[in-house]
Design a binder for these strands. Structure first.
Length: 612
RNA sequence: GGAGCGGUAGUUAAGUUGGUUAUAACGCCGGCCUGUCACGCCGGAGGCCGCGGGUUCAAGUCCCGUCCGCUCCGCCA
């Protein structure tokens, strides 16, 4: 321990001192944010995670302190003892030849700006090399450097603020769920491998040659087993692992607030979760949310917004102009419709900011979704001008389209004709793109909604095969149970997502707890009994012993933290994130391992196989 | 698997039609300065132009390959 800390204990953080503290003897510790050397007087900005305080080394006060202060450099870690003083008024330096004037010395940019600490003792705990980038917000340094020196990046106030808020989120979550009778129970990370769904990271078993664990994609099955075991209310703030391609909002390991409840229906569960969300917003952000949150059926979301996670901060909605297009006389689009495609349109009310350049840019934008976008401008009397569709649509189709879109003179209609999935995805993205370009998204709103009644199964476009949209234990709506056998694609699920500002922040479902219904679900999915047993035998067995009705949800903690902190990148709410290729630039991981290690695990690396 | 953008001093960027010694700002180092808080003033150092190959009398610049980072589609709940 340093001599300093054996005789002194920190009295305040660097963000704590105010005018009322003037005259106090204080002990501060922190890092040198910056220093301004004026010869006989040196000003030092001392920073810790709580803020910045100006401390002053003055030669006429204590010469030895001034001598040490003269050597200080950015990011040295120091401790000081000193006296809090009001900054008051001082004579400014003034320009040469100009008279010096009395000037107020308060720094209004920082909360501690009314005071400063005159140093009586100063100890350097450790020196620092010049950091590769300045430790301050609003620096513009590329991600490679930031990630390599992550421990320095994490010193920046903004990242510290983000991680502090993330900690508040998890603490409030534990408080809320704890007081509502939820038990925090851990489940295994190393689990049985089951093909299908997301790719798994694998962990070789030394004790079982040739066999592997999988890292859990989520604790889904275990939390259901906890319901069977009678724990009634479970939660866990838990890491999940998925070996899929990465994105800004996707890390290979991410954190879920995982929850499961027995003896509930959708309403009971959602109300409980709304309470959690409202408590988080109140305790962490100081914002009162209006409950209950809005609900919207999947079908309506797809129809009006083209996505299952509508951003309701933007009022523009889509409409369907498939019918007028069918007989429009425009051959190319007619053929899209006659082969089963749809035409979705976005009406953009007259807006000077919607320039020709933006409209022309839509072609490339749509291309990245595998679609082509067209646009026309509506003139007086419903006439069209602009792209080729303006000339090729016949009068009747034009009028019918105008009517469906409620188009007014000066409006622009943008549309895409394609297979339903592509048309919706593309127009959904165009809606947001245009909203962003025109500044129509109300950035300061919190627009929550429950997305309800999604399809239970997804039909693969290419193969026509049916797959579980959620997971195979999601319950169908009671009214749709008869459809399970003949028309599974039409069955809707007792599932729900919580959507915030166009981001899916959570999702869950009421589970199947009756084995007869589960058997029919597996049958619809064409999972044979052998397969069922091999993959989920233990769960099916467990369900023979009096399973309670139950359901649950999982929230993406990283996404919630991103939205609540206002972070633009998921990396900014995770202490040690990975890059888009899943590597950690600080530790330089992943790496090859020794031959000996591999042999012990009965693994042979095959560099001869193609990597792509 | 695919599309796009980027990599030049510690950092962020500029670098023309291929042409002399590769610029600038901030940072860094030395000196001066009692009121700064983006302190100021004087002086100085600092480069594998991501890496490999090619074209050329000549490549930061053109071509091919490759590595790394970012954004997006597919994929992923």
């Amino acid at each position: 321990m340093s001599a300093f800390l054996s005789t002194h204990t920190r009295t305040h953080s660097c963000g704590a001192l105010r005018a009322g503290d003037a005259g106090k003897k204080v002990v501060l510790t922190g890092w040198v944010q910056s220093y301004r050397d004026h010869g006989e007087r040196i000003f030092i900005d001392l920073r810790d995670r709580d803020g910045v305080t100006q401390v002053v080394a003055d030669k006429s006060r204590i010469a030895a302190v001034h001598t040490i202060a003269d050597t200080l450099r950015a990011e040295w870690c120091i401790g000081i003892v000193g006296e809090v003083r009001m900054r008051g008024e001082q004579l400014s330096r003034g320009e040469p030849g100009e008279e010096r004037k009395l000037k107020k010395m308060t720094n209004e940019k920082i909360p501690t700006g009314e005071v400063e600490v005159w140093i009586d003792e100063l100890e350097v705990f450790s020196e620092a090399e010049t950091p590769p980038f300045a430790i301050e917000d609003n620096i513009d340094t590329n991600d490679t450097v930031r990630l390599k020196y992550r421990y320095l990046d994490l010193r920046r106030p903004r990242l510290q603020k983000n991680l502090v808020m993330r900690s508040q989120i998890t603490r409030t979550t534990r408080d809320y769920l704890g007081t509502h009778g939820f038990l925090e129970i851990e489940t295994p990370f190393m689990v049985k491998y089951t093909p299908g769904g997301a790719r798994n990271f694998l962990v070789p078993s030394r004790l079982n040659p040739g066999n592997f664990y999988a890292l859990a994609e989520s604790p889904q099955i275990f939390k259901q087993l906890l319901m069977v075991a009678g724990y009634e209310r479970y939660f866990q703030i838990v890491r999940c692992f998925r070996d899929e391609d990465l994105r800004n909002e996707r890390q290979p390991e991410f954190t879920q607030i995982d929850i499961e409840m027995s003896f509930v229906n959708e309403q009971i569960l959602q109300t409980m979760m709304e309470g959690l969300i409202a408590t988080l917003w109140k305790d962490v952000l100081g914002i009162e949310l209006k409950l209950p949150l809005r609900r919207m059926a999947y079908a309506e979301a797809m129809d009006k917004y083209g996505v299952d996670k509508p951003d309701l901060r933007l009022d523009l909605t889509l409409c369907d102009i498939t019918e007028p297009t069918r007989t429009s006389g425009y051959g190319i689009l007619e053929s899209v419709v006659s082969s089963g495609g749809i035409v979705k349109a976005l009406r953009v009310p007259k807006d000077e900011k919607l320039t020709r350049a933006i409209l022309d840019g839509l072609a490339d934008f749509a291309k990245s979704f595998g679609a082509q976008a067209a646009w026309i401008k509506v003139g007086d009397g419903g006439a069209w001008s602009g792209g080729p569709a303006a000339k090729n649509f016949n009068e009747a189709a034009r009028q019918q389209t105008n009517q469906i879109a409620k188009a007014q003179p000066g409006d622009v209609l943008i549309f895409v004709a394609n297979k339903a999935k592509i048309a919706n995805t593309t127009m959904g993205a165009i809606r947001l793109h245009i909203g962003e370009k025109l500044g129509l998204i109300r950035k300061h709103e919190w627009q929550f909604m429950w997305l309800t009644d999604p399809p239970l199964f997804e039909v693969d476009d290419a193969t026509g095969e049916i797959a579980a949209a959620h997971h195979p234990f999601t319950s169908p709506r009671t009214a749709d149970e008869p459809l399970l056998d003949e028309a599974p694609a039409k069955v809707l699920a007792r599932a729900y997502d919580l959507v915030l500002n166009g981001v899916e922040v959570g999702g869950g479902s009421i589970r199947i707890h009756r084995s007869d219904l589960q058997a029919r679900a597996f049958k619809a999915l064409r999972i044979s009994e052998d397969d069922q047993r091999a993959k989920f035998g233990f769960l099916l067995d467990a369900f023979k012993y009096g399973p309670p009705p139950h359901g649950g949800i999982a929230f993406g903690l990283d996404r919630l933290a991103m939205l609540m902190t206002g972070a633009e990148f998921m990396r900014d709410v995770i202490a040690f994130p990975k890059t888009q290729r899943g590597s950690d630039l600080m530790t330089e991981c992943p790496t090859a391992v020794s031959k000996k290690q591999l042999e012990e695990l009965f693994i042979q690396v095959r560099p001869d196989l193609p990597t792509k």
